[in-house]
Structures are given as C-alpha cells and as structure tokens.
Simulated scan of single mutants.
Amino acid sequence: MAELNNEKLEEELKAALWFSIGKIVDEETLKLGVNATPQFIGALTEMVWAQIENTSQDLESFSKHAGRATISVEDVMLLSRRNEGLEDVLRSFVDKQKGGNNKAVKKK
C-alpha cells in the first residue's frame, strides 16, 4: 500500500514538474520566436527529474556520512563544489542569510 502511495506521489510530482517546465519553455520560446515540441518538454522534464534524484541521493549520503538525519547547508555547499558559479551564488546567499558578508569589499 505504501509503495502504491509513493508511486502516485511520484506521478503527481512529475506532472507538476512537467507543467512548470512547460510554462518556462513556452515563455522562452515566445521570446525567441521558436517552437518547442511536447517531446522536447517531456525529455527536458525527464532530464531534470533524473538530476533531482541524483542530487537528493547525494545530499542524503552527505548527511548520513556526517552522522546526521537532516540535510544541512554544508551538505548543499559540498554538492555545489564542482560548479564554481553555483557555489559563489549559494555562498553569497548563505552569507546574506547569516546577516553578513564574509568577503572583503575593495574600496575605490
């Protein structure tokens, strides 16, 4: 019974993801004056879903390795370590949330 509920939840989440990606693709294709097929949106949705699954598994593994049951900011930062641009954006966001900016600001 629990497996059936999980499958239903997964279907609902994929449908919501497909809808959201479809809206974004529609907006962008209108701006660019091009068309996107439903197959493209479906393939993009599957690719994003696979990335979400990989990311969630990695985050879960990082937190378990650290002996925690909850995913922390450190786990997310560890995940972003291979994407310098993403890491910079996330670090800036974390610093802002903590109420300070740890990077030195150069004066002109």
Rank of each mutant, 00 (worst) to 15 (best):
L44T: 11
T29H: 11
K8F: 07
V105A: 10
G99F: 05
E87R: 15
G33E: 06
K107H: 03
L90C: 02
L44E: 02
A16M: 15
M77T: 07
G100K: 10
K107C: 01
G85R: 04
K108I: 01
F93T: 05
Q39S: 13
M77L: 15
P38V: 04
T29N: 03
R91M: 02
E7G: 05
G100F: 13
E84I: 12
E28Q: 03
E28K: 10
E60I: 10
N54P: 01
G99S: 02
K14N: 14
D75G: 09
R81F: 07
S72I: 03
K64P: 05
N6A: 06
R81Y: 07
V94A: 13
W18C: 01
V25N: 02
A16R: 15
N102T: 08
G85T: 05
A16F: 10
E87H: 13
L90W: 02
E28T: 07
R82V: 04
L30D: 13
A69R: 13
E87A: 13
K106L: 07
K31A: 14
K14Q: 15
T29Y: 00
E10D: 14
E11V: 15
L78A: 09
E10Q: 15
L90P: 09
V105Q: 14
G85P: 00
D75S: 08
V105P: 06
D26S: 01
L79D: 05
F40M: 10
D95A: 03
N6I: 01
I71E: 12
M47A: 05
L79Q: 07
T55E: 10
H65N: 06
K107M: 11
P38D: 09
A2T: 08
L30N: 14
Q51G: 00
K103R: 15
A15L: 15
T37A: 12
E3Q: 01
Q97S: 13
D95E: 03
R82S: 13
H65T: 11
P38I: 09
K23N: 14
R82I: 04
V76L: 13
G67P: 08
T55C: 10
S92T: 06
N101V: 12
S61R: 13
K8S: 11
D88Q: 12
R91W: 00
K8Y: 05
L4G: 00
S72Q: 02
S61L: 14
N102C: 03
T45C: 10
M1G: 05
V89I: 06
D95Y: 02
V48E: 10
N83V: 14
A104Y: 01
A104H: 03
L86N: 11
F62D: 00
H65R: 08
S56C: 07
N6C: 06
L90H: 12
E53D: 05
T70A: 07
L17C: 04
V105N: 12
L78M: 15
A104L: 04
L79R: 08
E53K: 06
L9P: 00
A66P: 07
T37M: 11
K96N: 02
K14P: 09
G85Q: 02
L86S: 09
